[in-house]
Simulated scan of single mutants.
Amino acid sequence: MRIILITFMIFCIQAVSAQKSEIEWIGFEQLDDSLKVKSKPVLVYFYTDWCVYCKKMERHAFKNPEIVSAINNEYYAVKMNAESMAPIEFEGQTYINEQAKTKRNGVHQIPLILASREDNKVSFPTLLVLDRNFRIRKRSFEYMTSERMKELIKS
């Protein structure tokens, strides 16, 4: 009886730990490698350290177990500080933060390319849903509640 109980407890612990409580974020360089292994839709999240709504979204929508599970299971989730100074290699090209040469909080080339609105301005938070062929399917340039986030990531 004791062996059965111990086995059951181990099984329960493994089942609970298998459910991730956080989104498994990766960077663009890891995305490049991942896409070569398996094609999958991509969720891209651009944020800044000073963005109040980014922080709020990270505390709420990105902690919602249903959203965490859906993103981890159905997407490659890419998170990037839009003001990053780090050069990033993606698909054989290096992207940098050119604006940092002349602006205090310059925006990196990647969010400028992917997250610019029609008026060529960027705002944060920005979320992009890309299909398996890396084409933009959905964009959001604002704070997302959990309910709105569920709609955004719904296939």
Results as ranks from 00 to 15, higher is better:
I6P: 09
T7W: 00
M9R: 06
C12K: 08
C12D: 07
I13W: 06
Q14E: 12
A15K: 14
S17M: 12
A18K: 14
Q19S: 11
K20E: 15
K20N: 14
S21Y: 08
E22C: 05
G27H: 06
G27I: 03
F28E: 06
F28P: 04
E29R: 08
D32A: 05
D32H: 10
D32Q: 06
D32E: 14
K38G: 03
S39L: 02
P41E: 01
P41I: 00
V44Y: 03
V44L: 03
F46D: 04
F46P: 08
T48V: 03
D49H: 10
W50F: 02
C51P: 07
C51Q: 05
C51Y: 02
V52I: 13
V52G: 11
Y53V: 07
C54V: 02
K55H: 09
K55R: 10
M57W: 02
E58G: 05
F62M: 11
K63N: 13
I67C: 05
V68D: 08
A70Y: 01
N72P: 09
Y75E: 04
V78W: 02
M80C: 02
N81F: 02
A82S: 13
M85W: 07
A86M: 14
P87Q: 13
I88W: 03
E89F: 02
E91G: 06
G92D: 06
T94N: 15
Y95F: 15
N97T: 09
A100H: 10
K103C: 01
R104H: 07
R104L: 09
V107W: 00
Q109D: 13
Q109F: 00
P111L: 00
I113G: 02
S116E: 12
E118W: 02
D119S: 06
N120P: 05
K121Y: 01
V122H: 06
T126D: 12
L128F: 01
V129K: 15
N133L: 02
F134A: 04
R135W: 00
R139W: 05
Y143A: 12
M144D: 09
M144Y: 03
M144N: 13
E147A: 15
E147K: 15
R148I: 11
M149R: 12
